[in-house]
């Protein structure tokens, strides 16, 4: 058996030793899909991204699902990938946020989850987000978005997955997707979660807050105590999708 393992090891060629003739690739925790929209994509019919092309997300014919369907017609599916090597191939060929038009969004979501709060995986969740004034952050936003994507695909946002408690078989990652938005005056980065704490769910709130803290400190690179709010800028804030719908009324925010 040792001989077999040695023989197998000899036949393993990673991209590091064989950049074009590697024979193994590093699988991601989940497959991901990149989506894009901007005013320029509205009404463009090519290529079609019908909502029905997502078999893992059956669409019930409810008013909200119908609304999501309408919205999804303007959002374009770019590509799906499931390995580290493919992610970087995409990264090295796509336009970074700092070079996008003034009103555009990239949505990087787990395959089978559409980037809309109506999706089953998102409807009970919420999002961490930060808004950054454009002029001050133009040179930073590409790195911030890259690090956000790497924490998402590397699956390091949700510490619960590593802790001893996560050994039960059905532990699911909290993260469903990440978004970068460009607007005339600012950028926004968001992390979408599968669940949002309501009321007295202390365990879940702590888990969600750990995601926000990791985002602020390790991904965006701010000291934990730094205040970020200002003209066109917000703190790192969490809002459930249900509270977002209420448009500020009775919205309970978490702030890191």
């Amino acid at each position: 058996q040792e001989v077999d393992m040695q023989a197998q090891a000899d036949d393993i060629r990673t991209v590091f030793s064989h950049p074009t003739s590697f024979n193994v690739k590093h699988p991601l925790y989940s497959p991901w899909t990149l989506w894009f929209d901007s005013p320029a994509t509205k009404g463009r019919n090519l290529p079609q991204t019908p909502i029905s092309s997502f078999p893992q997300t059956p669409v019930p014919q409810t008013p909200s699902a119908a609304a999501a369907q309408g919205w999804m017609e303007d959002i374009k599916r770019v590509v799906s990938f499931d390995s580290v090597e493919e992610f970087w191939g995409l990264y090295n060929h796509i336009v970074p946020p700092s070079q996008l038009p003034q009103k555009a969004n990239y949505y990087l979501f787990k395959e089978g989850i559409i980037p809309a709060w109506e999706d089953e995986a998102n409807k009970n969740g919420g999002k961490w987000s930060i808004q950054l004034p454009k002029e001050k952050n133009r040179s930073q936003v590409d790195k911030m978005w890259l690090y956000t994507m790497l924490a998402a695909i590397g699956e390091t946002f949700d510490p619960h997955l590593t802790s001893g408690e996560a050994t039960e078989p059905n532990t699911q990652s909290l993260i469903t997707g990440v978004i970068v938005s460009t607007r005339p005056q600012f950028y926004r980065l968001s992390i979408w979660t599968r669940l949002a704490p309501s009321g007295d769910e202390d365990k879940l709130r702590e888990r969600i807050e750990t995601v926000g803290r990791h985002f602020k400190i390790n991904v965006l690179g701010y000291p934990e105590t730094q205040k970020l709010a200002g003209p066109l800028a917000t703190e790192v804030e969490f809002l459930s999708h249900k509270d977002s719908e209420k448009k500020g009324k009775a919205a309970k925010k978490l702030v890191i």
Binding site: T20, T41, R44, P47, K76, V78, V79, W88, G89, N92
Partner: peptide, 17 residues
């Protein structure tokens, strides 16, 4: 190291990117 364009990546300008 991973510079290869993904074989499944569509033309970006068609998508408005």
């Amino acid at each position: 190291i991973c510079k290869e364009k993904p074989p499944t990546l569509p033309a970006l300008d068609v998508l408005g990117i």
